[in-house]
Amino acid sequence: MNIGCQKPLLITIVLFFSVITSPFGHGQQEIFTFSTAKQETTYQALIKELRCLVCQNQNLADSNAGLAQDLRRKTYEMVIAGETRSQIAQYMVNRYGDFVLYRPQVNRSTFILWFSPFIFLVLLISLAFHFIRKTRKRSQSSDYSEEQLAHIKSLMQDKR
């Protein structure tokens, strides 16, 4: 392969990586300043945890939607005002419902969401045990009576 052939490939690769690492790929454009590092980590954690409701399956940190910008600003204002992470999360849940959190709180409506995997796991394990025991029992029990078995044994010995 000569150089002329490799060049377009190289350009393609460079372009590809420049797109996926480009700063425009990230929704967060506004620059907020925090007075303490703790406030900033709270803010960053929250915008990763909160769902953008317009563009579902994106969090506030990744989304460029107008609502995401507004909610980021709201989060920022509340962080600056000294509210805790759980207070801000509760504020959002009160307005947008449990769905706004990527890890919704455990309550009556989210109970199935949280625990159904464990319920299914227990169910499947008990089913598996049930079947294993059943097949084992079947392989242990015999279809022949003692007498018949003795007869079979004698027949086999005769053959030898």
Binding site: V54, G66, L67, K74, R95, Y96
Partner: peptide
């Protein structure tokens, strides 16, 4: 104008 009341009402679209 700022959309703050809409946030209070949980408006997303």
């Amino acid at each position: 104008e700022a959309g703050n009341v809409a946030i209070d009402y949980g408006v997303y679209g």
